[in-house]
Nucleic acid binder design. Structure first.
Length: 223
DNA sequence: GCGACAG
DNA sequence: ATCTTGTCGC
């Protein structure tokens, strides 16, 4: 699986605009998915080495079905708003290594709640032509009121009249997460699935596992 | 103009 | 993202 590698911020912004034209926010899952994947990337502090992990679980049984780990190197600097160019290449490799086809991919970051309405989840969704959405841990763009304190409570993440996502409480009295649609999913599905995937902790189980997997694999690969 | 800014 | 110990609470 290959992907365009921009060599400048200006070039990345052009590619981003091109990909955005393929974004589909009208279609949605329509039915409860069975196979759900979560992806994440870990970075080495002193080298360009990175490791990506993709974890697939069966939502009905909550059992892990499969996982994949891939090692690589960063090919683009971190620029707020252009995170996808840093992570999508290796995420494609990780997803391509899986033997199954997850019905939706949960990303560690934002979807359309992005400066130009095309965050990591949108980018990965368009490139893979798969349904995706994002679950972020910290605020990025948009304004919001603090949601209620109970699990399931949420408040809209907005920019003026535009609704960008939801600030969702996945655990009672625990800091909320920021959910936004990526590609071929809507906010209701993303919210519902995020809650289903977070029965015990703040973050969706697939994201937690992908985080642990990538972090440990990177650490173990150090010389 | 200056600072802030997913991971 | 990554660097990091203890500590408070269930």
């Amino acid at each position: 699986m290959h992907h365009e590698q921009p060599t400048s911020v200006a070039e990345a912004e052009r590619i981003q605009e091109q990909l955005k034209q393929r974004l589909d926010l009208d279609t949605h899952l329509g039915t409860n998915p069975t196979l759900v994947a979560g992806v994440d990337v870990s970075y080495d502090k002193f080298s360009p080495r990175i490791t990506a992990a993709a974890v697939v679980i069966d939502v009905t049984t909550r059992e892990e079905v499969e996982s994949a780990v891939v090692h690589g190197e960063v090919s683009f600097p971190y620029v707020p708003g252009l995170l996808a160019f840093r992570e999508v290449p290796i995420l494609l490799e990780a997803l391509g290594t899986l033997g199954c086809r997850p019905e939706v991919v949960v990303c560690d970051g934002y979807g359309i709640a992005h400066p130009r309405r095309f965050g990591l989840a949108c980018h990965l969704g368009v490139v893979t032509e798969r349904p995706t959405f994002g679950v972020a841990k910290t605020p990025f763009v948009g304004t919001y009121d603090q949601p209620g304190r109970r699990r399931g409570d949420w408040s809209p993440l907005c920019d003026g009249d535009e609704v960008l996502g939801r600030v969702l409480r996945t655990q009672t009295d625990v800091k909320p997460v920021f959910v936004s649609a990526g590609h071929r999913t809507n906010l209701d599905e993303a919210t519902s699935l995020t809650l289903d995937l977070s029965p015990r902790y703040r973050l969706p189980e697939v994201i937690r596992r992908a985080d642990f997997l990538s972090r440990e694999a990177l650490r173990r690969s150090e010389d």
